[in-house]
Design a protein around this nucleic acid. Structure first.
Lengths: 228, 228
DNA sequence: ACTTTTAACTAACACTGCTAGTTTCTGTTC
DNA sequence: GAACAGAAACTAGCAGTGTTAGTTAAAAGT
């Protein structure tokens, strides 16, 4: 009868903890992850987690980072043929898909890259590709940030909350323009999708216009060699 | 010596609770608001709050709604001369200002209008103004949503988190394009501001282009009366 | 004047993140 | 191979959390 001090083979590992924590978050939400419940799910007792993580936030950060790591970045490869606009578009769609797959993680992810390495890797890839495409460094930084703002903001503001599906909760006379129909949770999903697409397109159109403006200014300063 | 059952004049009111809760959030952050601490600050003991709110979340929702209520909506008045684009711009700036003034509330606010009446009032005003400006109803809904996504996402991703000001936290070789300088918390503030401005401009430019497209299509269908 | 409701209270429950201290196994070093 | 440092599990427990139940006395309603 062992008194269960240190096992022959480690029961826990960072990967295993992050894995079951992820599953727990996906299944039952962020609040369902308590150190004790997570530990129980791992067949282990509470404080053992603290041999592998400094605190609970570090675990959730790791869960969020695992989501970031699933975002496709191939469009930013030097060898990829896509131009900056399509690359940005495809990345945004892939990013959103990653968030939609794990909606409960979004609140953690939305508060910035912080210390999460995969999140920083994403920012790095976007920045590099934009600079290579001809954007000034300052603008390239801004683009990475503002795209993240829009994507995470859209993910957070939509499926991680939204309206309440209770007809009595809203008094239509308080909101003269909004019909009751707009408030139904069922409709909300389509609105989210549409708003994301419209916003993404507007964002890229607007950036393309700014890009045009920038290259025109540059051409005026250093006229091209070819006789145009 | 009264045994402090029911006082002559009510000690608590929803307004007073929301007020001190707001102050507490602003001063010490969201986590600093516990029912007991809030009650202590009000000179009252714990569970008394539950005579005025169903639960803690309802209190925080009310705090968030108070912030929403401070957003300027005058640009959406029927009598206001501003066109839809400038109105949208001015509103976005005012919205962001309200969030910057109370950064700790943003996480609550970012998860959608939910049951908060002031939040819904904002959505209603935007929707009404956009429809009046000639946007189709579906697009008007999308615009309200996507603007909110961008604004709250930007507020959340920046000052409510951001980078860690610890030089040893990041290994520059992991992020070939990002210089170490970009990661300093001090710089982060300027980046946020710039990213917001760039993004807002791009968003409005892009929407203006879509608007043009829409009215052109409409003109083609029903040609104008004047001989152009 | 009697009843109901309201708004405060105290006590307590189940749970939270986390620390301290203990035990036993593993891996390294003389 | 013995001694030792460190790792990885444990138990016990602390201070704090949101919330409910039940009590009490003043206010408001009939």
């Amino acid at each position: 009868m062992c008194r269960m001090a240190r096992p022959r083979k480690p029961l826990l590992s960072r990967e295993r903890i992050v894995g079951t924590a992820s599953a727990l978050v996906d299944a039952d939400g962020l609040d369902a992850v308590s150190t004790r419940r997570l530990a129980a799910e791992l067949g282990v007792s509470g404080p053992s987690l603290y041999n592998h993580f400094r605190n609970k936030d570090e675990i959730l950060d790791a869960v969020a980072d695992a989501v970031s790591a699933k975002v496709d970045l191939s469009m930013f490869d030097e060898s990829d043929p896509r131009d900056w606009r399509t690359a940005l578009h495809d990345w945004a769609v892939s990013y959103r898909a990653a968030l939609t797959a794990h909606p409960n993680v979004v609140p953690v992810l939305a508060r910035g890259p912080g210390r999460r390495p995969a999140g920083l890797k994403v920012a790095d890839a976007v920045f590099g590709a934009m600079v290579r495409a001809g954007w000034p460094a300052a603008q390239a930084t801004h683009i990475g940030a503002l795209m993240r703002y829009f994507i995470t903001g859209s993910a957070l503001g939509s499926f991680a909350g939204g309206f309440v599906d209770d007809e009595t909760a809203y008094d239509p006379s308080d909101y003269p323009h909004l019909g009751q129909a707009h408030l139904l949770a069922e409709r909300q999903e389509k609105i989210d999708e549409g708003a994301f697409e419209t916003g993404l397109r507007a964002l890229l159109d607007g950036l393309a216009a700014q890009y045009e403006e920038g290259t025109r200014a540059k051409r005026a300063k250093t006229p091209p060699a070819d006789g145009s």
